[in-house]
Design a protein around this nucleic acid. Structure first.
Lengths: 155, 155
DNA sequence: ATAATATTAGTCAACATTAGTCAAGAACAC
DNA sequence: GTGTTCTTGACTAATGTTGACTAATATTAT
């Protein structure tokens, strides 16, 4: 309790609000000022303490009237399964292996047939074809991981 | 929620009218005056929030009795709907515009909410982020077109 | 009819206002 | 001492606001 750093304090402050509300919306500069830190520290707090693994989804907008909104989401009970697929995907993944990932999702009931087909359309060779095989495999991995992270929670 | 910028407020005002009516016709200077902004801000609002990707068609006339008319178009009436979106996507597309495309697909009934969310996960900035913005926009366009083509043959 | 003037909307670039990224150094835990 | 986490600030990016200038159309004067 005594040795809390400022990031922990900001985290507590936001989570306290989230305990009573489904979401919290802040102006970055305002919170930074309130806690007497530089604005980018708010990004640090969010990046390290409000991840999808923790059950939070973050949205933001820049410019006049800008904001950062943190939403608490209901995580599904497939987390271990998703984790294992995220690990399997890694930094890059071949087209062949990515088919297996999508098939696993379908067979596990995480997605239905038409959702599977959309994912396949998003990662097939018409969709991702930069001319550099390794680059393609990296992009495919990022897309799959983004989709897997989305499948962690109820939306 | 409280600190909406004026462009959002004008957008809401116009969409509120469009919720009850197929179209809205305004005099630019009048609306600008009503919301206490310069007239060109009305153009900004229309350009960023009432595009064809969003499902709106805008017509205007200058001179005495001039007007700006925003019409909500029924996308399903258009058999070439997918084609028009493919054209709108083009060789590259910004994240902002790609959101409009997905929203249009959803509002047209071509995809349901969870399919829309999967597509958004596939094209958001976590998914596509090579460090080269133009490259990202090109990849995003290819993925969207691949999905659009899939949807064309699916239905 | 034609030209001049008035009355609208359109474009564009400068400026303002937000948030995001990244890397260096400090503080901390072991 | 070493490795991790935290803090900071310079730089970048996205979005919104403003006003000077331009273009189109209508009205009025000749």
């Amino acid at each position: 309790m005594e040795n809390q750093n400022i990031s922990d304090i900001i985290e507590s402050y936001l989570k306290q609000i989230l305990a009573e509300s489904q979401q919290v919306e802040i102006r970055r500069a305002e919170i930074a000022n309130q806690f007497n830190v530089v604005p980018s520290q708010i990004n640090y707090v969010i990046k390290t303490r409000f991840t999808i693994q923790d059950g939070y989804v973050v949205q933001s907008k820049r410019g006049g009237g800008g904001y950062i909104r943190i939403e608490k989401v209901k995580l599904l009970d497939n987390l271990d399964f998703i984790d294992s697929l995220v690990t399997a995907v890694g930094d890059q993944i071949s087209r062949h292996d990515s088919l297996s990932v999508v098939r696993s999702l379908f067979e596990a009931g995480a997605i239905n047939r038409s959702e599977a087909n959309i994912i396949l359309a998003a990662i097939n060779k018409d969709a991702i074809n930069t001319g550099d095989r390794q680059a393609d495999e990296q992009i495919r991995a990022q897309i799959l991981i983004s989709i897997l992270n989305h499948l962690r929670y109820e939306s």
